[in-house]
Each structure stands twice: as structure tokens, then as C-alpha cells.
């Protein structure tokens, strides 16, 4: 008979795997030419270069085209409900901080149905990386405007054009106090690998917005190519005001690391509270004793 449970903690040795080893047996269901292929390939490379063992890696997602991400990675995966990738990932990370946790999803998942969770993951500074593949459209439901779509988008659900102003995800994250904010482009895989790597190595919450066009419902390849360019060399990623300035520029979509700061992660902060509260030889018997007559 078991009466108590011993907590499990894992020790991991650095892996020596190729990007291909992180590919699952499933071929992505995405349309040929989808930007998400580029993101996935960059992700394989980024984790391989960090020597992360597949059993240490947990990829969590919500719903949408990019929500299928975990199924294509040889790792542990948790495919949640629409919008809940961040709280699911928070639970995983807080229960086992020794795991490497990545959340992945699209702009609808992150900035519409799941938007309520974003500032909270940010303020907790949960040590996870959130890769948001932003195509400015709802692809899985066949082309409706998303919270990042430009004003006036005409689709079946907005036949006279949308009136809503799009969300600026990076500005939102910076304003919420995010400790790491960056933007990549699926068509620039080399930079994207480095960006994802840097995000994952950051201790704390990192938001990577990846411009990842939808070839079927809103092909923005040319548009993104025209208006995106790397952040100027004189931008200091420690300067939040400078980061905000470049994030606010909507005529040019700057790519690269916008902002980074170090502050305690959620699990570190909580562990410190545990150390402060810890009582030796303390358990249910002692707790009950406090309520005895």
C-alpha cells in the first residue's frame, strides 16, 4: 500500500541529434507553401543546436493550423483547446521546471481567444518560449479576418470590409512588461533559427512573433518581403523605449531581437518562496494538529 508519493525529478544529458531527429513520423497537414513549414524547419534546427534531448522537450499548442505543431515534433506534446496553450504550458513548467517548454500557435489562438493569457504569462515571466506564427488570417476555418488583419479586410465574414484596428502584438508584449520580445519571418530561416534559439535560451517568458504567410487565404509573401527588414544595428535590445519605437512602426516590420531583460522567472520566484516557507518534518499530521481542539 502506498501512502505517500515521492516527487520525480529528471536529470538530462545534452543530446547530440540532427535536426532530422526532431522530425516526427507525421508529415504536416499544412498547404504546400505554408509559412509554417519554414518555422518548423527552423525549430528543428534551433533545438538540435541546443542539444536538447527529445524527452526533455515539451511542445504545447492550442487550436489552428499552427496548433498542429506538436504532432510534427519528436518530443512530448500537448495539443490543448483553443487559446489555452499558455496556461497548459505554465502548468507543465511549474510542475517540472527541468523540462524545456515551448508553446506554439497562431495569431487567432494567441491574440484573440487566448489573448487573456498572454499578459499573465508575461507578468509571471514563466520560463517558456511562445512562438506565434502570425499570418494575419484564420486559415483553418477558411479565411476570416484575425486580430492582426489590416483594417478593411474583405472576407466572407466581413463582406464590406473590417472596421477593427489590428493588434500590434509586439507593442502589446512590450507594454505588458515582457522580458524577451522578437520578430522573425518564415522566409528568412537563418535568422529565424538564431532568433528561436536566443528566445529559448532566455530565462523567462519569450515571445517570438513569426510572420508566416498563408498561401491559400491571404498570401502576404511579397508584402512581408517588401516591408520587413532587420532592426537597425544601433538598436539596443536593452532599451525598452527604442524597442517600443520600432514595434510601433507599422510601415516597416522590423525583424530581430527587440527587447531583453533579466528578471527572476516564475519557477525561480516560487522556489524562493518555498525555501522561505519550508518546514522540516512537516506534513498532513502536523497540519491537522493545528486544528485540533
Amino acid at each position: 500500500m502506498i501512502t505517500t508519493l515521492e516527487p520525480i525529478t529528471y536529470k538530462f544529458e545534452p543530446a547530440n541529434l540532427s535536426p532530422n531527429d526532431y522530425k516526427s513520423d507525421l508529415h504536416p497537414i499544412w498547404c504546400p507553401g505554408c509559412g509554417d513549414f519554414g518555422v518548423l524547419a527552423s525549430f528543428y534546427k534551433a533545438v538540435a543546436e541546443q542539444h536538447i534531448p527529445t524527452e526533455q522537450l515539451v511542445v504545447v499548442s492550442g487550436i489552428g493550423c499552427s496548433g498542429r505543431f506538436p504532432a510534427f515534433v519528436n518530443a512530448y506534446g500537448l495539443h490543448g483547446t483553443h487559446g489555452r496553450a499558455l496556461p497548459l504550458a505554465t502548468g507543465v513548467k511549474m510542475a517540472h521546471p527541468e523540462l524545456v517548454v515551448v508553446a506554439a500557435g497562431g495569431d487567432g489562438d494567441a491574440f484573440s481567444i487566448g489573448m487573456g493569457h498572454v499578459p499573465h504569462a508575461i507578468r509571471r515571466n514563466v520560463d517558456i518560449t511562445y512562438i506565434v506564427m502570425d499570418n494575419e488570417i484564420y486559415g483553418l476555418t477558411k479565411g476570416q479576418a484575425s486580430p492582426t488583419s489590416p483594417v478593411g479586410m474583405e472576407r466572407k465574414a466581413s463582406p464590406y470590409g473590417t472596421v477593427e484596428t489590428p493588434i500590434n502584438p509586439l507593442l502589446f508584449a512590450l507594454a505588458s512588461g515582457a522580458s524577451w520580445v522578437g520578430r522573425g519571418f518564415s522566409s528568412r530561416p537563418k535568422e529565424l533559427v538564431d532568433l528561436v534559439k536566443a528566445a529559448m535560451q532566455h530565462k523567462g517568458f519569450s515571445l517570438v512573433q513569426v510572420l508566416s504567410p498563408c498561401v491559400t487565404f491571404y498570401d502576404t509573401y511579397d508584402h512581408f518581403k517588401q516591408i520587413s527588414k532587420p532592426l537597425p544595428a544601433d538598436h539596443n535590445p536593452r532599451d525598452r523605449m527604442s524597442a517600443i519605437k520600432y514595434a510601433m512602426d507599422e510601415a516597416t516590420l522590423y525583424l530581430g531581437l527587440f527587447y531583453q531583460e533579466e528578471r527572476p522567472t516564475y519557477d525561480e520566484g516560487y522556489a524562493a518562496k518555498r525555501a522561505q516557507a519550508a518546514k522540516p518534518n512537516y506534513g498532513i499530521k502536523e497540519i491537522m494538529g493545528k486544528y485540533m481542539r
Binding site: R84, P87, T90, G116
Partner: peptide, 28 residues
């Protein structure tokens, strides 16, 4: 915190249950 556990005050109830599911997925 005294016995090695974790309590999170979530931002809403969906987050609360999602966090619990995430934790349990790891065996806790």
C-alpha cells in the same frame, strides 16, 4: 510551499484548469 507544492492564482477558470491539466500531464 512548505511541502514542495505549487499554488497558482490563475487569470481565469479556464487557465486554472488548463494549468492543473498541464501539471498532471507531467505526473504531478
Amino acid at each position: 510551499p512548505r511541502i514542495g507544492g505549487t499554488v497558482i492564482q490563475a487569470e481565469d477558470e479556464m487557465a486554472a484548469l488548463a494549468m492543473a491539466i498541464g501539471a498532471s500531464y507531467t505526473g504531478t
